[in-house]
Design a protein around this nucleic acid. Structure first.
Ligand SMILES: NC(=O)c1ccc[n+]([C@@H]2O[C@H](COP(=O)([O-])OP(=O)(O)OC[C@H]3O[C@@H](n4cnc5c(N)ncnc54)[C@H](O)[C@@H]3O)[C@@H](O)[C@H]2O)c1
Ligand SMILES: NC(=O)c1ccc[n+]([C@@H]2O[C@H](COP(=O)([O-])OP(=O)(O)OC[C@H]3O[C@@H](n4cnc5c(N)ncnc54)[C@H](O)[C@@H]3O)[C@@H](O)[C@H]2O)c1
Lengths: 235, 235
DNA sequence: CCCACTTTGTGCATCGGTTCACAAAGGGAC
DNA sequence: GTCCCTTTGTGAACCGATGCACAAAGTGGG
């Protein structure tokens, strides 16, 4: 029993492809601004930093939007990718936790551009509540549920301390939110059907450090085989 | 001709594993603080949000550090993972671009904790240069090369506008830097051997939007098959 | 209208990563 | 010392993603 209507059209886009579509979109927008009408998979792949076969396969999952011998129509492809990603509608985003990071995010113009609108800022600190940031009033976390409903929030950005993140997540999920972007360094436990994406600076640095160490080890002829547990450390 | 000395010991840790080690480390630190002496793969996997077979395979790439029937010694494992990740040495990090985001990063205590030290802040804006942030003087971007050398910087965090990122990257790479964490929404082009990790808020939101759209589509009985190019858009 | 050239879309081999499932190893009780 | 219980470490099947390589499709020139 094989289920396969048309190669891959019936709504089954690989996760890896989805993660690259925004990259293509950004490259295409640059080309659109520079007035290019069409682009080949080779050129677009170069601009997006991927291999051209991969790009073509990715795009083929959306449909057959290219013209052989010519390439892809820039504006048309922008439209198709935007539609696929859901950027033709606008998304109300709430930022919870308006500290260092929350403020930077609120003031950031970069994502308002593409369908995302910061619709609410929430914090627990009475010192912060009431502040006006990027044209928005910071509201009290007690208002969380009401604000989500009132503003039609569908994506929540968590920028609270780690200790508060799970508890805030539970509350927004109870309110029906199923998309969360988490900056707090904790593993959130959420029910099936809720999408969490995490951004973790510290993890990124640790991965860089791993490779950096390896590069310098290689130059100095490998580590001095210090495999042993040093005496100094108490168990 | 098969090259295989000891299962996987000779320095070949899968990338996916490396990306998870910081997660295990964080979970282990929590356990250490709570005074746990040993932990089973089952419990640690739960805390890190992964499946226990994966956890065991990941750890097996570092060596055979568990005890069958017992589990892993928490402190010992913390030490081994830290060493593998290169966190037993300290890394001098420079942040280039001290705007909204750069400031938040500079003020963030969370990564100083684990082997990373913000050693320099640089900006091009004369208004910003000279500011004192988190105990550091913001220096002028003209000093970039000198500062990197003087402070022994080995990891650079890019928090400049997109337009400046490539140019700054070129300069730090010329100075010998091979590890860059990039927050600017551009594809950096760098020579072989230079590691770039990127953090892109906008991409994360777009991925969430994609899934969110799909979830709501499903509830409303799928998209209204609006496959066509709407009239309004000019080509 | 036909031919030469360009570029897409995809079948297929390959690869890295995940998961299952179990033999081997160690601990503790008696 | 033996037996039973727990938990690791890993072989092997599986799965999704990557990249090669080429047939099919379309363009433009003569
Ligand atoms: N600043 C960075 O560069 C950075 C980098 C990586 C990760 N992070 C993480 O992002 C999160 C925020 O970092 P930050 O530097 O902005 O911290 P911060 O302390 O400056 O801000 C946290 C804010 O959250 C508020 N808050 C606390 N509990 C709350 C609750 N229950 N509900 C709502 N708001 C609450 C606090 O009042 C504060 O305003 C932290 O988890 C941090 O680990 C920050
Ligand atoms: N703020 C956010 O939440 C956020 C989120 C995602 C991505 N980003 C990206 O991070 C980057 C920084 O964002 P931001 O909000 O802090 O912007 P910002 O404009 O507040 O800060 C940028 C800083 O870089 C400095 N700068 C400009 N050119 C420079 C150069 N050649 N060398 C050194 N410094 C230079 C500017 O003087 C300014 O201080 C941008 O690329 C932005 O797209 C920001």
């Amino acid at each position: 029993m094989i289920r396969r209507l048309s190669q891959a059209r019936e709504r089954g886009i690989p996760e890896a492809t989805v993660a690259r579509l925004p990259l293509y979109l950004r490259a295409l927008n640059g080309m659109s601004e520079r007035g290019l009408a069409t682009v080949s998979s080779e050129d677009l792949a170069l601009a997006a930093g991927v291999n051209s076969a991969k790009l073509r396969k990715d795009l083929s999952h959306l449909g057959s939007y290219g013209t052989r011998g010519v390439g892809y129509d820039v504006e048309y492809l922008i439209y198709q990718i935007s539609r696929e990603l859901g950027l033709t509608q606008d998304w109300a985003v709430a930022i919870v936790g308006v500290g260092n990071l929350g403020r930077a995010l609120a003031n950031y113009g970069g994502f308002v551009s593409r369908g995302f609108r910061v619709a609410a800022l929430l914090d627990a600190d009475p010192e912060v509540v009431g502040d006006r940031i990027a044209g928005l009033n910071v509201e009290h976390i007690d208002e969380l549920e009401a604000v989500i409903r009132r503003r039609g929030v569908s994506i929540v950005v968590l920028a609270t301390p780690a200790a508060a993140a799970q508890q805030v997540a539970d509350r927004v999920i109870a309110e029906g939110i199923t998309s969360i972007l988490n900056f707090a360094p904790v593993v959130l436990s959420v029910p099936e059907g809720v999408d969490i994406r995490k951004v973790d600076l510290s993890i990124e640095l640790q991965i860089l450090a791993f490779h950096e160490q390896r590069k310098t080890d290689r130059m100095t002829g490998g580590p001095a085989m210090a495999e042993e547990w040093p005496e100094a450390v108490d168990l």
